[in-house]
């Protein structure tokens, strides 16, 4: 500790402190709050201010976390089975939707008359709440994998389709003019101008659709299966294991985070020219 009589080093010390303060990254603040909240929670349960059964404390969650990784829940269904089941369903439904919706959207968007003819259908189909289709899909296809993947695909399809159509229509006329005056044919303009020009918005749609996939997966895993993270948290409820439900939610957050990051990474690789990824979201 520098003494106050010694003015110069003290000022240097303050300066250093200021400088270090400036370099604290934002996430450190966030982490601090999280740790404080977890500690408060633990403390409150310890002193019986809140019910340990309805609010299992972090220490309990940590033990459950470990137990789930080791033994799984319910007995015999390992955690990686849950992870794999959920991930597969999402990837299947999501990629089917993307593979169908992107080419179709590009085509519809580039054909104005067709676009006008199908616009009301798309608007309505998009408004239909995917989860309200659950009972219908069960009546049609039964309670099976197909129903689950179908609903995920349905929810994502319309979002991606709309974004692809808007993307094509939103490509600046300037670029088309420029390409025309450079002698590009219609086909060349489509492949080299419309397609790359619409990718940023298509990616924005893909991002929203991923969120939709996560909303739907939980609902469809709540019925007729014991495999998958949605099933895990619902099953835990049936056994009054709030701790397992909470750890299940942490698992879901982890998958969601990883998939969103993967998509952002893909976008940076595939669209190196886009400055601000957020810009496109508007």
């Amino acid at each position: 500790m520098p003494s106050s009589s010694d003015a110069t080093p003290r000022r240097a010390w303050i300066r250093r402190l200021r400088r270090t303060r400036l370099t604290i990254p934002d996430w450190a603040y966030g982490l601090l709050t999280v740790l404080v909240l977890l500690w408060l929670w633990e403390y409150a349960v310890d002193h019986a201010w809140i019910n340990a059964y309805r609010f299992p404390p972090p220490s309990k969650l940590a033990r459950t976390f470990e137990a789930l990784l080791e033994r799984g829940f319910p007995r015999g269904v390992t955690t990686d089975t849950h992870f794999k089941a959920t991930l597969w369903r999402i990837l299947k439904g999501y990629s089917v939707a993307a593979v169908c919706a992107i080419p179709l959207g590009l085509f519809v968007g580039a054909t104005p008359l067709l676009e006008r003819a199908v616009a009301p259908i798309i608007t309505f189909a998009r408004s239909v709440a995917t989860l309200s289709l659950l009972p219908l899909a069960v009546a049609w296809f039964g309670v099976g994998e197909f129903t689950r993947v179908f609903l995920i695909a349905y929810g994502c399809f319309w979002i991606i389709l709309t974004s692809a159509i808007n993307a094509v229509q939103g490509v600046s006329k300037q670029y088309v003019f420029a390409a025309q005056s450079l002698g590009a044919s219609r086909r060349q303009i489509f492949m080299q101008v419309m397609l790359p020009g619409s990718l940023p918005r298509i990616f924005a749609g893909l991002r929203v659709a991923l969120g939709m996939a996560f909303l739907v997966i939980i609902a469809v895993e709540m019925i007729g299966t014991i495999e998958g993270l949605g099933a895990l948290i619902m099953e835990a409820r049936n056994f009054y294991r709030t701790d397992v439900t909470m750890v299940g939610m942490i698992f879901i957050a982890i998958i969601g985070f990883v998939l969103a990051r993967t998509l952002a990474w893909l976008e940076r690789i595939l669209l190196p020219w886009v400055t601000d990824l957020e810009e496109v979201q508007r």
């Binding site: 600046s172 300037q174 003019f177 420029a178 005056s181 450079l182 002698g183 790359p196 020219w273 886009v274």
Partner: peptide
């Protein structure tokens, strides 16, 4: 007629393809 490579255009705002 329609635009073609015989007439080169330099636009007011450069209109470069941002992805190239």
């Amino acid at each position: 007629g329609s635009p073609g490579p015989d007439r080169g255009m330099v636009f007011q705002h450069a209109a470069l393809f941002p992805w190239l």
